[in-house]
Amino acid sequence: MNRIFASRLLPLMATGLVLVALFAAAGAGYENFLSARVVLNLFKDRAFLGVVAVGMTFVILSGGIDLSVGAVMAFTTVFLAKVIGGLGWSAPVAMLAAVGIGVGFGMFQGWVIHFFRIPAFLVTLAGMFLARGMAFVVSPRSVEIRSAFYDDLGERGLPLGEGLLLTVGPLVYLVVVAAGMVVAHGTRFGRNVYALGGNEASAALMGLPVGATRVGVYALCGGCAALGGVISTLALSSGDPTRGTGLELDAIAAAVIGGTVLTGGRGWVFGTFLGVLILGTIKTILDFDGSLDPAWLRIASGGLLLGFILLQKLIARRSVS
């Protein structure tokens, strides 16, 4: 027992346990809940959030925050709708350009944060208004995307048997999570992100590239936000300047529920993956049970968030004593 409590993986295990418990409870309460189709839908429904949350996890690990991700995602969706529908760009080129814009936007935010020593909260808050405003400039209302490429992509995926198909959106999500885990754990950039979040002054004294890492982290997050936008257009075949309102907070919640400490330096991409699934499961339960008020989604998320923050605090106290 003590060894379990002493383990630094404790928050991750707690998150996993909550996910299993939620699923088990829902399975007992609702018929047909424990089915591959429900799980598959959950992945499909939450893929965009999952991708955005991976980027957010890196930013939080570095000791920062990015409030602009929802707005960047919204901009991406209307940008795609506009250039594909209005300007007739080929869809793959438009998607690449959109992700490029996201990366560039993130780089710029990271550069401002690093070189002017302005809190990330403020810079990305400004970025949030900027990107959201740009989204409305591109299109004030929702636009449908008509494209053969989209229609074709919608039918492709990884066949799982019994007529089930892991479509492109969730597939990209899983790939991003896996890549995120490898980058965070196995590359110098990833370890420098942890170092930066652990103690910036120490990281600098150890000769680590603090500036490049910080700019890189926001570029990565901007890219993930744009990629989330691309995935959301795949699922909904439309662009909408109001989409992803409050998404940044869901992404932060997913990361924290997954065991990432908001002050930086500690956490896991895999934890965020579990966090997204927990939030998704709660939503699925509400979808299943038509009688429940959607407000319960928020309340349950809030309760979980509070519980996990308290758990982290308890663990931190333990490791101090």
Binding site: R191, Y194, A195, G198, N199, S202, A203, M206, L208, G265
Partner: peptide, 14 residues
Amino acid sequence: NLLPNLSVAENILM
């Protein structure tokens, strides 16, 4: 001036 959130080995080779 090291990083308490990383392993001993990483701190040496960072």
